[in-house]
Structure formats: C-alpha cells, structure tokens
C-alpha cells in the first residue's frame, strides 16, 4: 500500500469545524468547557480531548477587510518523525501500514520527550500522564475507511487519499508548491497554501530540534562505541596481561 495522507486546502475551508466534532465523536473525546474569548475559534489549543482544530487567522487588508483564513491543525504524521526518534518506550509511538504515526497509551511511560521533539507542538498529555494526539484515525484507515475529519468535511478542504495522488491533485489545481511535500521526508498532512506558510501560522521550514538530531545521530552511536570499547579493552587486557597483572 502506498503512503496515505491528508490534503488540507484552507481556501476551501468555511470554518464549520465539523472536523473537530467528527473527531471527538469517533475518538470518544469529551467536549471542553469554553468561554468567550472574542473569537469563534474554539477551543484555543489542541489538548488531550482535542486532536484537531481549526486555527482562525484574521488578515484584514484594504482590498479585503474581512479576510479570514481557516487552517486545520493536527499531528502532521511526519515521514521523519521527531517523536518516534526520541521515544524511549518501544511501541508507545508507532507507524501504521498507511504511514500514520499512532500511539499506544499502555506502552507510554509518560516521559514527555515527544513533546520536546515535535516540530509542530502537537503531542499532549492526559490526566494519567499518557500521550495523546491525532492518529489519522488509525483504526478507521486500517479498515480502508476515511479519517472521520475528512469524511465529514463538506467542502473538500480536508481530503484523504494516496499521498502521490493528492499531490497530483494539488498540482493540477494550480498549486506549484505544496507545504509538506518534501519537509521532514514528507508530511502526512499536506497544505495547499496560496500565500507564504507563515501567514497561515506555519513554520517555513519545520525541523526536528537540533538537540534531538544530535542525540540520535551522534550521542547514541557514541554510547554503543563506548560500551563496545570498554568491553574490547577488558578482553584485550585479560588476554594480553592476564587477570591480576
């Protein structure tokens, strides 16, 4: 099976937030108590009970005094996922056959390293100190179904399908550059932006923190080398000089 992903087209989004509700319904996530913060963007941030949300970006200009951008926020299911790189508990974060990054709460040890290594600030911890985030509805897509957010989207702003096909679709619609096409070995949630990504509140070049890359590519191999070196030196000394010399 090819890698599956989402294609987000903010220009098509009408901000109905049906995706937020559908996500809560399928994943059985509780609603959140809200308050009037002067905007219909709600809730204000991702949480253990909010795997996806629509970010509202107000961009009034002379030409268009009421320009409002709706940007779907969620786990991006990176091809090169920082969270999976640093997670010390085997199987707590894993990749599904479809290419999504899913979690297993039973295996999570609550160290929160995934929070520090995520380029998009996505993972949240619940009251039991276990990881939670969008899994691209891993249980649905494994059965060939569409993630509930994309299934419910009435305008096609959220589309789910084969990653290459979606890229082709975006190119055909006139988007020469798709956000997440190549970043971090390709994101599992791509964005068809008509403006610079920063305007939509996205990082121009998302990257895993340097400390995580350094730890994974340098310190980790070094520690194996160190352990092997100590063992080799001990064996050498034993063979060359004997045990008590």
């Amino acid at each position: 099976m090819g890698r599956m992903s989402l294609l987000v087209s903010p220009e098509l989004c009408i901000g109905c937030r049906g995706c937020q509700t559908a996500c809560k319904e399928w994943n059985q996530l509780e609603g959140e108590k809200t308050e009037n913060r002067g905007t219909t963007e709600n809730p204000p941030d991702l949480s253990t009970n909010t795997y996806n949300k629509i970010r509202y970006v107000e961009l009034p200009s002379e030409k268009n005094p009421a320009r409002l951008l709706f940007v779907s926020q969620r786990c991006m299911h990176c091809g090169d996922a920082g969270c999976m790189k640093i997670c010390p508990a085997p199987g707590a974060l894993f990749r599904t056959d479809e290419g999504a990054v899913a979690f297993d709460k039973d295996k999570c040890i609550g160290c929160r390293l995934c929070v520090t290594s995520c380029p998009f600030n996505v993972p949240r911890y619940d009251a039991d100190n276990k990881v939670s985030k969008c899994t691209l509805c891993a249980d649905r897509i494994s059965q060939g179904l569409t993630p509930s957010c994309a299934k419910t989207c009435p305008t096609g702003a959220l589309r789910y399908g084969d990653r290459d096909e979606l890229l082709g679709l975006a190119k055909k619609a006139g988007y020469t550059k798709v956000y997440g096409d190549k970043d971090l070995e390709g994101l599992g949630a791509m964005y068809a932006f008509t403006d610079a990504p920063v305007i939509y509140g996205m990082n121009d070049s998302p990257a895993i923190p340097e400390s995580v890359v350094f730890w994974n590519n340098v310190l980790k191999p070094l520690s194996y080398l160190g352990l092997a070196g100590v063992a080799a030196a001990a064996v050498f000394h034993y063979v060359a000089f004997g045990p008590k010399k």
């Binding site: 010390p88 508990a89 085997p90 295996k107 040890i109 609550g110 160290c111």
Partner: peptide, 9 residues
C-alpha cells in the same frame, strides 16, 4: 527485567 518500561522509568 525491570518489570516493564513504566517501572523501569
């Protein structure tokens, strides 16, 4: 050996 990764942590 440590009784699971949770306990090992």
């Amino acid at each position: 050996a440590f009784g699971g990764f949770n306990q090992m942590k």
